[in-house]
Write a protein that binds this DNA or RNA. Structure first.
Lengths: 113, 113
DNA sequence: CGACATACCTTGACAGATGAGGTATCTTGT
DNA sequence: ACAAGATACCTCATCTGTCAAGGTATGTCG
């Protein structure tokens, strides 16, 4: 794991919402997807993931339901709500603004000082 | 303050080091500089700033000395050490990697996937 | 003389992340 | 038949960075 998790702190919710924008999903799958999409450089810890689900559900950004798997372990699916989509849009633009500011403050070779 | 501080969490040390790369400085000045360079969209809280100074000094990344102001409030200057410069370089590249991954995970329409 | 800027610092509390632990099912190799 | 590992869920105690709130002191301006 080459990415310091502390640097991603605070982006967990947006990352999960981003995944659920496309389709309903469940914890284990979301985790593996994040691992894959980050080229194995970042992995959400399970405890972090389930803490985030709780937080997002309490906020009304996602709702959950049990899958009807006939075989294998049961899956708890999550679905993003309209409020969740709004929150995602907002968090995405916040990320872009934050990214911009950090770039400036770190002197990431920015000539437009 | 339009930028959620929690999103910048973890970048405080790098931001301070980045400032000290150019010249020795003191707390109050660094804070104002950050405010200005972020177009007043982000401000380090004093408690956060002094906590960070303590952390950086303990780590050997910065050293401090009192200025010899004849008038006005005394100033405590900080100077970056060679180890601090190394740490800054490392943290800068970590930021670039993290930025890249968050962009991917948030689906920030990145064509170079 | 009061307000405000400059300049430093500490303490207690909060929130997100996480190591470590737990439960249960199914598959694959030996 | 059995062990190992993947799939799949969850909780709790602890750690760390942030920050509101409080404090001290000096200089300037109206």
């Amino acid at each position: 794991m080459s990415i310091a998790a502390d640097l991603i702190r605070g982006h967990t919710d947006a990352i999960i919402l981003s995944h659920l924008i496309h389709r309903d999903s469940y914890g284990y799958e979301i985790n593996k997807s994040i691992l894959g999409r980050s080229d194995h450089r970042y992995e959400l810890k399970e405890a972090t993931l389930y803490t985030a689900f709780k937080r997002l559900e309490d906020a009304g950004y996602i709702v959950s339901y049990w899958g009807d798997e006939k075989v294998g372990a049961r899956r708890k699916y999550y679905s993003i709500t309209p409020a969740g989509r709004e929150a995602y849009e907002k968090q995405l633009s916040e990320w872009l603004a934050t990214r911009n500011i950090i770039d400036k403050l770190l002197g990431t070779e920015d000539s437009t000082l």
